[in-house]
Computed example of a mutant assay.
Amino acid sequence: MTRRAAVTRRLLPLGALLLLAAPLAGCGLHSGTVIPSDLGPGTLGKGLPLKGVTLTIASKNFTENVILAEMMGLVWTAAGATVVDRTNISGSIGARQAIVSGTADGMYEYTGTAWITYLGNTKPIADPQRQWQAVHDADLKNGLTWLPQSRLNDTYALGGNAANVAKYHLKTLSDVAALSKSNPSAVTLCVDNEFGVRDDGLTGMEKAYGMSIPKSNIRTMDAGIVYTTLSAGKSCLLGDVYSTDGRIPALKLQVLDDDKHFFPNYDAAPELYSKAVREHPAITGLLDPVSAKLDNTVAQQLNSKVDVDGQDPRAVARQWLIDKGFVVPKK
């Protein structure tokens, strides 16, 4: 999904201009370096199956994708590998090319991004597993191997101040469509620049749901400001949010159900350089249990630690892996 390259979802710590857009804390601090080998096997990596192997991780330049890549690298490190950190690549295309070319061996990618942006399809597949399978099969010819997806679906959504949403009894996007017809002036939207023009954003959503929102009721702004404005609850009833963004729980925003399943599935899954998988098949078994534990709630919590609390993405990934017992600190 190209918005993940074009829009960075980052925050200052809460005490400093809460939730305004700012550079992602920690990103870029590690890129190009070797991940320290200060972790050992927990439930993963026993027997050091990657001992003597050198691997490289990559990511796009936004919080969640960096955290997921760091998880990948840390698990490989605990299994004995030397891992080079090439995270924080600008642009979805650039990050993918790093894997296609073998410059990097793995990253977490999103099924919807691959299906629509890279593979050139225009219609998403509604069933998450079928979409993953289609991407998996199509990308084999590109020298890429997709491992099983997680339940982390980082897609668009509409959200708003909880009190405002309750005032109008909004639970679904169909409710918004009904309100836009019965009381057009009530439906005011704050949207970021890209969502406002994308077919899988505002334009397509209005068409799919039959919404009648006056253009004068739609305000375009920076993605970070959308969250701040929604939290204040004065200028906009609703706005576009990303379903795994840590600002949603931090600001107690209410997210509406996409009851017609308009927005595509963007399920995160490891995308690996196929040659690396053939040469080091152990890497797949190391990552499957990690992906199985990832969902939107976990992503929101981890993203918030970086975007709201100002923690380092690698440190956040490391602690989560330790807490899950996947790895342990070396003594």
Rank of each mutant, 00 (worst) to 15 (best):
S274W: 04
A292P: 08
T145A: 09
R3W: 15
K275Q: 11
L173A: 11
D309R: 09
G112L: 10
A177W: 03
A95T: 02
L302Y: 03
K305G: 03
D139F: 13
V290I: 06
W146I: 04
D323Y: 10
V75L: 06
A166W: 08
L140C: 09
Q131S: 03
S59L: 02
S180F: 09
A208T: 14
T229Y: 05
I283K: 00
W320K: 06
T8E: 13
Q300E: 11
N193W: 14
R318Y: 04
V84N: 10
S304A: 15
V298L: 12
R278L: 08
L256H: 08
Q129S: 02
V197Q: 14
A299T: 06
D200S: 11
L251D: 02
S304Q: 12
A114K: 05
S59F: 04
Y108V: 13
S92A: 15
S150C: 03
A299E: 05
I248W: 08
G94W: 07
T117G: 12
G80W: 00
S243I: 03
R4Y: 14
T188M: 13
G106I: 13
A98D: 10
H261T: 07
G233H: 08
V135M: 11
N153W: 05
K293T: 15
T54D: 07
W132R: 08
N88G: 06
I35M: 14
T297H: 08
A178V: 05
Q311G: 09
L179K: 00
A78I: 02
F195E: 07
M72F: 12
I225D: 14
K305A: 12
P289Q: 01
K234Q: 15
A126Q: 11
L17F: 04
G91C: 04
Y168F: 15
A282E: 02
V308W: 07
V100I: 12
P124G: 05
Y227L: 11
M1P: 09
T56R: 15
L144I: 14
V176N: 04
P49F: 01
T43N: 07
L48G: 00
R3P: 09
Y209Q: 06
Y110L: 14
L24Y: 01
Q149T: 03
V327D: 01
A223M: 12
Y110P: 00
L287P: 03
I35E: 11
G28N: 03
V7M: 12
Y209P: 03
V255E: 06
M71L: 08
Q254G: 05
T82F: 04
Y168L: 12
P313Q: 05
A114L: 15
I248Q: 04
A157C: 08
L147Y: 00
N296P: 02
P249H: 06
F62R: 09
K275A: 09
L253G: 11
N303G: 14
V176I: 12
N164L: 13
L17W: 09
L74E: 11
F262W: 07
P270G: 00
A6W: 15
N265P: 00
G106C: 14
T8A: 10
L256K: 10
P289Y: 03
G246H: 00
V298K: 08
S212I: 13
L147I: 00
L147A: 00
A126W: 01
I57S: 08
V34D: 14
Q300G: 11
Y118L: 15
P329Q: 01
N121P: 05
D222G: 06
L14N: 07
E109A: 14
T56N: 11
G73Y: 10
A223Y: 13
T113Q: 12
A232D: 15
I67H: 05
